[in-house]
Each structure stands twice: as C-alpha cells, then as structure tokens.
Write a protein that binds this DNA or RNA. Structure first.
Lengths: 124, 124, 124, 124
DNA sequence: GTGGTCTAGACCACT
DNA sequence: GTGGTCTAGACCACC
C-alpha cells in the first residue's frame, strides 16, 4: 500500500496548482498583471527561485506571458484558459467518480445523489 | 491569500481518512482484526504515537473497537459503517460541487458533464 | 542594429542544444544511459543545478526519460528523435537560405552552388 | 568532449564577421564612409580598442581603407568585395553541408530538402 | 548513489 | 525595478 503522505508534494507544484486554479476560476482575469517574482515569493514565504520555477511552469503551460522588462501577465489567450479549465474539470470529475465507484456507487447512483443534493446557498 | 503549503497537514489526519476510506469501501470488513499499532506504524513509516492517535480517532468515530485483551477490531456495527459512508460520500459530493461551482459550472452543467463522462473500464 | 554578442546565451541553453544535437545526430543512441547530473555538471564545469535545468528541458522536449532511482536515459522513442531532427534540419535550412538571400543568392543560385560544391572527403 | 561555452568567443571576431557581412551583403556600399571608431564602439557597447582591432582586421582583409587624414572607408575595389562574398558563401555552404552530413543527410537529401523548402515571403 | 527540490545570495541585461 | 541565470550547498526519497 502506498503510504506517501502528500507532505512532500513539491512546493513549486503546489504554487502552480494554486495559481492555475485562480486563473481558470477567474480570480485572475486574462491580461492581469502578476506581481513581481520577489513580491510573490515573499508573500508565499518561499525562495524567489522556487516561485520563479512555478511561474516558469505556468508560462510553459501558456497561462502566463512574460515581458522581460515589464513583468508577468496572465495570458490574454482565452482559448488556453478555457482548455485548461476543461481539462481540470475533467480530471476532477474522473477522480470524483473513481472515489465514488470505490465506495460502491455506480454512475446511476451518483447522478441520483447529485440530483438530490441540495445546493448550499451560503458558501462559507 | 493563505499560502500555507500542506507540508504539515497533520499526518494522523491523513491516516484517519485513509483507514476510514478502506473501511467504508469494504477493503476492511466489519469485524476484521486490525494489525497491532507497532506494525501499522512501521508499515506507514510514522511514529507509533501518531498511529495511536489515528486509531483513537477511528475508535471515537465508532469505526473501530478495542478489547483490552485481544486487540483492535473493525466495528461489526454495519449501521455505523453505512452512515459514515453516506456522510463521507455527501462530503465528497459537496466538495466536488463547490470546486465545480468555483470553476463556473452550475448544477445543470455538472449533471451534463457527468452524464457525458465515459467511465474508464480499467480501475486502478 | 542589434549588437548583442552571443556571449550571454544562457549556458543551460547551450548545453541543451549541444546534447540535442548529439542525440539527433546519433552520437547518443536511443536508450543510452546518460551520466549522472553531478558527473555531467563537473565535466562541463557548471553547477549541478544548471545541468539539471538543461536535462529537465531535454526531458520536457521528450528526448530524455528519467527514472528517479536509476538515472537518466535517452528516450527510446525513435519517432521523437526523428521529428526533432527534422525540425532542427528545417531550421538550419531556413537560416542558411536567409543568409544566402541576404548575400544576393536566390533559390536557383543556391541550388547551383550546392550542386557544384565538391564534397570534402576528409572531414576536418 | 569540449565543453567550452562560447561566453568568450572573442567579441572582436564577432564584430568582424558582422561588418564583413554588412559589406558583402551590400548594407554598406563600396566607398562609404565608416563612422569613427569611438562612435562605433559606443554603439556596440564595446571598448574602443576592441572595435579598433576589428576594423584593423577588416583593413587587413582589404575590405576597408584608411586615409590618415579623412577617416575610414569601405573599399572601392569591387573585386575584393565580390571575392570575399564568394569565399563567405562557400564557407557558409561548407558549414551547412557539414552540419547536415552529421545529421545523416547526404548531398542528394540536402538538394531535395532545399528544393522542397518553401521560401518565406516576408524577409525582415 | 540517483534525481529532485529548496534556500540564500549574487550578477546580468534591459528600460 | 523587472525577469533570468548561475553558484554553492543542503536535504529528501528511493533503492
């Protein structure tokens, strides 16, 4: 059995995921300026290099663009954001279904549970 | 923004969740004997105290029972297991929906996505 | 006019290009074991992190594969190597033609020059 | 393996090649006056001595002429320019072919690739 | 011993 | 002040 506690999920990966979520969820809008590496790293309490690595990854994915002199920006390519969001959702769904399956719920059960599920109005 | 990386998300909590999942998913059956704390802790690579704390929590919940003389057992109270499972599922659903909401999918969207989602044939 | 002397082409980029060329030219064969990061970095006289970055890039491109415990290997996916090689050649050709154009040779001239060019038998 | 990164590929050589290219490509015409060393060096961001060395080399080659009183000029000897251009092209071709050979393309392959290569319409 | 990650701190180019 | 790169040196997980 795999007993690896997620304590060791690389920090820069966690940063990537967090920022990715903020972008695809719209917390950061396309074209928004991103704070300087140094500020972000200080804010997050990590080394600038670590933050740099995370941002580099986001740029590689296409969610950010860099202008050497004027800073970083959220991509203005809506298509990429949309696609990333759909991939993310698909993965969430997949994991969710896998978990539910392991609990013994089949697809029909899941649909029923979801249909009956009352949406909370207040959201934390 | 909260930048606490889950490096320190209490390990015992992670153990509790893992074992809870194994019980409600049927990997551990009702009445099964649970391995000694020392074995479990070694297997998981954690301090025995940590494992002890996790098992204590499971006992508190009612999923395990301790007989001072013959060790620890999974509860044989099916009702508790069933109820825990339902709560667990409900929470999974709730979290899932919250995530999807934050991505901009409403309940109808989610149902559509799930309906269209093609189940994987191979499982784990 | 751009007077940037290539003195500042990032070292890790130069390493990437060099290794890429060795792979697509067949100096490194598919599946070959790559020396450990530390050895390579010492050999090249750079910091291990710099070499790591270069190798990471090559892995990202798909020319190398990493096995956490047993080291790095040249990819065994011939298709990727072939494709990379073709892209590389295409770029070389493009640059070559652009240079020749600027010298005043058009495509026909270039073909004539190449046809007349006597291959050297001894190579350096 | 030779791991010398071109960080120190003599800058004056790079300048020589650049200026040589500008002359043989016609960006500088025969007989044109050359800007003063001090201006050129400032423009290129190099030490005047470095620029001086480069210009001296170009003079040695015969592409520039110095009149002690009125400054430096591009040679008005078309023959030299033409010859230099042909040598330059020959070298480009030679290097190009050597690279392609190392990639595994023989002369026939190269001619095919070039024939198929579609010229870009826009040229800087 | 392997790769991977992280920190601290520095320097560079560009503007 | 911006991002980018590099070094030195450390620690971790895995086998």
């Amino acid at each position: 059995m795999a007993w690896d506690f997620d304590s060791d999920r690389a920090i820069y990966i966690q940063i990537v995921e967090r920022l990715k979520f903020m972008i695809i969820s719209g917390a950061y809008k396309k074209g928004d300026k991103v704070s300087p590496v140094r500020d972000l790293s200080k804010e997050a309490g990590v080394n600038p290099n670590t933050m740099q690595k995370a941002l580099g990854e986001l740029e590689r994915i296409g969610l950010m663009q860099t202008s050497r002199t004027s800073g970083r920006y959220i991509t203005d390519d809506e298509e990429i954001i949309k696609r990333t969001k759909e991939e993310f959702a698909e993965e969430k769904i997949s994991l969710f279904i896998k978990d539910m399956n392991r609990l013994g719920y089949d697809k029909k059960d899941i649909l029923n549970l979801l249909t009956d599920f009352k949406m909370e109005e207040k959201d934390e």
